[in-house]
Design a protein around this nucleic acid. Sequence first.
DNA 1: ATGCTGCCTGAGAGCGCTCTCACGGGGAGG
DNA 2: CCTCCCCGTGAGAGCGCTCTCAGGCAGCAT
Lengths: 329, 329
Amino acid sequence: MTVRPTLEKVAARAGVSRATVSRVVNGSASVGEEIRVAVLRAVDELGYVPNFAARSLVTQRADSIALVFSEPPVRVFSEDPTFAGIIRGVSQEVEAADKQLVLMMAGSARGHERVERYTTAGHVDGVIIASMHGADPLPMSLARRGIPVVCSGRPITGNGLPYVDMDNVSGAVQAVGHLLERGRRRIATIAGPPDMIAGIDRLNGYRQVLRDSGRRSIIALGDFTRDSGALAMRQLLEDDPALDAVFVASDMMAFGALQTLRLAGRRVPDDVAVVGFDDILSAEYTEPPLTTVRQPTLRMGRELARLLLTRNPESPVVLPTELVIREST
Amino acid sequence: MTVRPTLEKVAARAGVSRATVSRVVNGSASVGEEIRVAVLRAVDELGYVPNFAARSLVTQRADSIALVFSEPPVRVFSEDPTFAGIIRGVSQEVEAADKQLVLMMAGSARGHERVERYTTAGHVDGVIIASMHGADPLPMSLARRGIPVVCSGRPITGNGLPYVDMDNVSGAVQAVGHLLERGRRRIATIAGPPDMIAGIDRLNGYRQVLRDSGRRSIIALGDFTRDSGALAMRQLLEDDPALDAVFVASDMMAFGALQTLRLAGRRVPDDVAVVGFDDILSAEYTEPPLTTVRQPTLRMGRELARLLLTRNPESPVVLPTELVIREST
DNA sequence: ATGCTGCCTGAGAGCGCTCTCACGGGGAGG
DNA sequence: CCTCCCCGTGAGAGCGCTCTCAGGCAGCAT
C-alpha cells in the first residue's frame, strides 16, 4: 500500500488502455458499460487514487483556492471573530465544489512575497483576500500577475476588483436611529480605524443620522480592540459628561466601553445606552447583554467563495446587516 | 505575464541548460559563480517561478501539510477557542518551514472520505488531526495508507500514533486543589463528554483530589457548550443545594453555570466558587472574572507541526496547564 | 608529455496524467 | 452489397520539472 498504483497498473489489470481508465475516472461519457464496470472494479481493488501533481501538471488547474489573511494572525484568530465566520463560509462552498482550501497568513512583507510566489507557482486557482486594511497592495499585485482575486470588504482604493462587503453604513444608521427612537439626545460614537473600510463606513453612517436629525457628532477613535474602547469611552465622558448614548463600532470596543462606564458609575442603559457592532458570541453574555448590529459573516465567506469559483462578475456583493436589540439600550 | 515562463525559457535566456537552471533555483552547490549570476538575472527578468505541480510530480513531495478538523465546523470556529490557537501555532511552524497549510473539515462521513482521497492523492506530506473525539477512526485509517499523521489530544484508543496533549489531569488537580485551599468543602464538578479525552482526564483529576482528601464527588455531565453548563448547574443545585464550589470542565460551560447561579440567587464567589477550564478570551470579562485553567494552545499547534515536520518520534508531548486565579474563587 | 582525479555542465529519461488524433468495426443509408 | 458515418478505444505526445549519468576540461602527479 506504500507504493501507490498508477493509471498504467489499473489499465493493465482491467485489460484496457490508460486513456480509457482516465475517461472512466473522470466520468467522461462514451465508455462501454461493461468496460466501465471492469475499470471501476480494478480501481477499487487496487485502491487507485489519481496522482494530483500529474493531473495538475497537464490540466493547469490545482482545484484549490487560497484564503489569505493579510493581517497579523493574532488578530485573525482571537480578536476578530468575523474571520471565523468567513473561514467557515468559504470552507463550506469550497468543499461543496470539491476543491480545497489553503490558508495563508500574510501579515508581514515576507508574507506578501510568500503568497505571491505560492500563488504564481500554480498552486491555487484563485485567491480570496480577507484584509481589513483597505489600502492593502496585495490584491492588485496578485491580480496583475493574472491570478483571480476576490476581496472581503470594499477596497479603499477602489481598484475595480470584485469584492463582498457588509452594509456597514446601513448597520450604523439602524443603530443610531434606534438610539434616537429610544429618546437619546446626546449620542457619541467610538469609531474604528480610519484606514479600514468598516471603520470608515460605520462612522459615516453615524454622521449621516446625526446630521439628518440636526445633532452634533461626538467622536472618539479606537482600533477595534477592547482596550482602545475602554480608553475612548473615558475620553468621551470627559468631552461630554452629559452624553446619554454611545454607538461603538465594534463589540470588542463596546466591552471596553461597558467596563469604563461601570467604573465611572454610569448605569447601562439607564444613564448611557450602548450599541455595539458585529454581534460576536459573547455580546449576548455581557452585563447587560449588548444591543448590536449583526453581520452575516458565514454568508460573506460563502459569497466570497462563490464569486471566485463561478467567476461570476456580478461583483460588488453587499450583504445586509441587522440590528439586534438586547438590554443595553 | 499571463503565460508563465518555464525552466526552458530561463535556460535559453541565460545560455545554459535546463539542468543548470534547476540547480541554481534549488540552491544546489557546484555551479560556477558567473553562471549562477547569469541564471539569477534571467530568472529575475522573466519573473520565473517554478511550476509546483511539475516539481511535485518528480520529487514526490507536496511541501504542504493538512490540518484536519474532524468536528462540525461550527464547533471549531465558534464554540471552541482552543482550535484558534492550534491553527495559529501550526500555521507559524509550517510557514517557518516554508510549507503550506491546507485546512480541511471532516465533520461528516463524506468528509472523512474526502480527506482520505485528498491526502492519498499526494496532495500533502502529512496530516495533523485536530479531533476531540478520542475514538475517531480517521487517524488510523490515514496512517494505514502510509500517510504521516499526528493527533492533537491523546487518542482514546491508544493507537500508537504520535500525539500532543494538554496535561488535563494536572490542570484539574490544580483547580480542585485551589478550591480546597480556599476552604471549600462541598465541591461539585460539571464534567465534559466521556468520549473526549479532555472530558475524561479533567474528571479524573477532579476525582483524584476529592478521593485523596476523603470527600465525595458530586458530578453532572455537560458537552462543553454553554447551555449544557447552565443545565448541569441547575441539576447540581438540586442534587446538593449546600454545595459551595464547582469545578467546570470548560469555560463555556462555566459561563452557563454562572448564569444559572445568578438566577438562583447564589453569589459568586461568596456562596459558590467557580473554576473553569481553557482560559478563553472572555473568561477575563465575565461577572465576576473567571478563575480558570490556562492551556498553551498556540504551543500545542506549534508542537503538532513540529512533530509532523521533523518526523521526530519523541512523541507523546504533554504540555503543562496553569491555574489562573481571578475573582470567581 | 601522459594519465589521473575531480569538478562543472549538458543530455536525456522519466514522474503520472490528459487529450488529441487516428483507427477499427458496426449500423444505417444508398 | 457497398459506402459513409459515428461511436468507442488505443497510441502517443507532451505538461515542466528533477536527477542520474556521462562527457569535457582543468590541474596535479607521474
